[in-house]
C-alpha cells in the first residue's frame, strides 16, 4: 500500500475513534471497545500465524486466562487495575512460554492440534477452579482506579484508557514485526532449515514469538475483563480460538494491521446480527470456508495485490513509452 494512503487512512481512523464516545447515538462505544480488544488479540495472534507461519489453535487460552487472572486480582484481592493487568499479561506470557515450548516440539498440523488440546486443558482448569464460578463465570468485576488517578468507572475515561493502551500495544506489535527479531521470524516462516543453518536458535525464537504473542493476547483479555466486568468460559473456549483465526484470515495475515480489520468485521457480524441466533454461527462458518477456498490473502492482502498490479501495469507502460521514445 502506498505510504501516503496508509497514513491518511490511519489518521482518519484515529479521528473517528477519538470522536466515538461523543456520539454514542451513532455507534455504541462499548462495542467499539470490544472491537479494539479483539483487534489487539488478532494482531497479537498474527505474530505467530502471519509472521512466523505457526498456526496456534489455542490462543483463547492466553486471552481467557488473562481475563480470569485480571478479574481475580480486581475482585477477589481488591487490587488496583494496573497490578491486575500486569498479572494478566505476565500469566498469559508464562502460559505462552510453556505451551509454546511444548507445541514447538512439533510443527505444522501437529502443532495446531497440540495447542488446541493444551488450551482445552486450560479450559478444564478454569472450569474447576473454585473462584471462577464454573459456568456462571466471574461477574461484576470492579474496574477500579488506574494508578490512583484514572477512575475507570467513568465511561469516557475507560474508553480513552482502552484506546491508548490498544494503540500502544499495536505500535509495539508493529515494532516487533519490523525489528531484526521480526526478520528472523519471517526467515523461519520462509525456510526453517536455512534459518537454522545460518545459526539462529530457531526453537528459542519460536518460543519467544509464542511468549510475546500470548502476552499481548493476554493484554487484550485483561482489557476485556475490565470493560465488560466479566470473565467467562467463552473466553477460554476453542470457539474463541477459532474466531481469532478467522479474523486474521479475513483481514489478511500478511499485513500487520489487517487482522484488526477482520476483528472489526467479525465483531460487527456478531453484534448487529445477534437477533439471528444460531444462524450467525452458520454464517461465520461459511465465511471461514469461503476465506480458505478463495480468499486466502484476506481483505488487506487482496487490496495490496490489486494496488501493486495496477502500479506495475503503469510502470511497465511507462517503460514501454520510454523505449518507444528512444526508438
Amino acid at each position: 500500500m502506498p505510504r501516503s494512503l496508509a497514513y491518511s487512512l490511519g489518521a482518519a481512523g484515529l479521528l473517528a475513534l477519538i470522536l466515538v464516545p461523543f456520539f454514542p447515538q451513532v455507534i455504541y462505544p462499548v462495542f467499539v471497545m470490544r472491537v479494539m480488544c479483539l483487534a489487539l488479540f488478532a494482531c497479537a495472534f498474527n505474530i505467530l500465524l502471519g509472521q512466523t507461519g505457526i498456526l496456534s489453535f489455542g490462543h483463547a487460552a492466553f486471552f481467557g486466562s488473562s481475563a480470569y487472572f485480571c478479574g481475580y486480582m480486581l475482585k477477589e484481592q481488591g487490587l488496583s487495575p494496573e497490578i491486575a493487568i500486569l498479572t494478566g499479561v505476565v500469566s498469559a506470557s508464562l502460559l505462552g512460554a510453556g505451551i509454546g515450548a511444548l507445541a514447538t516440539r512439533r510443527s505444522g498440523i501437529y502443532l495446531a492440534m497440540i495447542t488446541l488440546a493444551l488450551s482445552q486443558l486450560v479450559y478444564f482448569l478454569f472450569l474447576r477452579l473454585p473462584w471462577t464460578h464454573a459456568e456462571d463465570g466471574m461477574q461484576q468485576i470492579p474496574r477500579g482506579v488506574f494508578f490512583g488517578v484514572l477512575d475507570l468507572n467513568s465511561d469516557k475515561t475507560l474508553y480513552f484508557f482502552v484506546l491508548i493502551l490498544t494503540l500502544l500495544a499495536l505500535a509495539l506489535i508493529h515494532r516487533i514485526i519490523h525489528s531484526p527479531f521480526g526478520e528472523v521470524l519471517r526467515a523461519i516462516r520462509e525456510h526453517e532449515p536455512r534459518a537454522k543453518s545460518l545459526g539462529f536458535p530457531v526453537a528459542r525464537y519460536k518460543i519467544l514469538a509464542f511468549t510475546l504473542s500470548a502476552g499481548l493476547a493476554g493484554l487484550a483479555g485483561s482489557l476485556k475483563a475490565i470493560i465488560f466486568q466479566v470473565a467467562s468460559l467463552r473466553d477460554v473456549h476453542w470457539s474463541m480460538s477459532g474466531d481469532v483465526i478467522l479474523m486474521t484470515l479475513l483481514g489478511g495475515m500478511n499485513s500487520v494491521f489487517g487482522p484488526a480489520l477482520g476483528a472489526a468485521l467479525i465483531s460487527a457480524l456478531y453484534h448487529y446480527l445477534d437477533f439471528l441466533g444460531g444462524w450467525v454461527t452458520i454464517m461465520v462458518g461459511t465465511i471461514f470456508i469461503l476465506c480458505v477456498l478463495a480468499f486466502r490473502k484476506g481483505i488487506v492482502g487482496e487490496l495490496q495485490a490489486a494496488l501493486t498490479t495496477r502500479r506495475s501495469d503503469t510502470a511497465s507502460n511507462d517503460k514501454k513509452d520510454s523505449e518507444n521514445a528512444t526508438n
Partner: peptide, 11 residues
Amino acid sequence: GLLLTFGMVLV
C-alpha cells in the same frame, strides 16, 4: 485443510 473442515464444523 484443518481450517476448512473447522468452518464445516461451525456450519
